[in-house]
């Protein structure tokens, strides 16, 4: 894939995050402004309650993918401004791609397991 397409995908991820990450941050950090304490929002019961919603579960998959791609692509851009050379640049790209895949795999597993726990009625 050409570099410009990686960049365009990063811009798309940014737009996605403006919606889903803003919603996540508002729920997780601003709930006291509407009278719901942070302790209530982050309780185990509330976590499972949110996980019962298919929209929220898929929203988390989307957020995970968009945030990891945008973040690690941006980090790659910063690192590649250093004089790392061609082989170094390739190594940075491969390492960050692996980090992204592992983090996405683990994060998606957590989201799926939480949804499964919620559905089982615990």
């Amino acid at each position: 894939m050409r570099e410009s397409r990686f960049w365009a995908l990063s811009m798309l991820a940014a737009v996605v995050m403006l919606v889903v990450l803003t919603a996540h941050m508002a729920v997780m950090h601003l709930s006291p402004l509407v009278g719901v304490s942070l302790e209530t929002t982050r309780s185990f019961a509330a976590v499972l309650d949110r996980a019962r919603s298919g929209v929220q579960t898929w929203g988390y998959y989307l957020l995970l993918a968009a945030a990891l791609y945008h973040g690690l692509y941006g980090l790659r851009g910063v690192i590649l401004e250093l004089p790392v050379g061609r082989a170094g640049a390739r190594a940075v790209t491969v390492i960050l791609a692996l980090v992204g895949l592992i983090a996405f795999g683990y994060g998606a597993y957590v989201v799926a397991e939480t949804a499964r726990l919620a559905a089982s009625g615990i």
Partner: peptide, 15 residues
């Protein structure tokens, strides 16, 4: 992005 990686790990502790 560094916080995000920590946050993914920390979120997994709910399991």
């Amino acid at each position: 992005v560094l916080y995000l990686l920590l946050h993914i790990y920390e979120t997994g502790l709910r399991l």
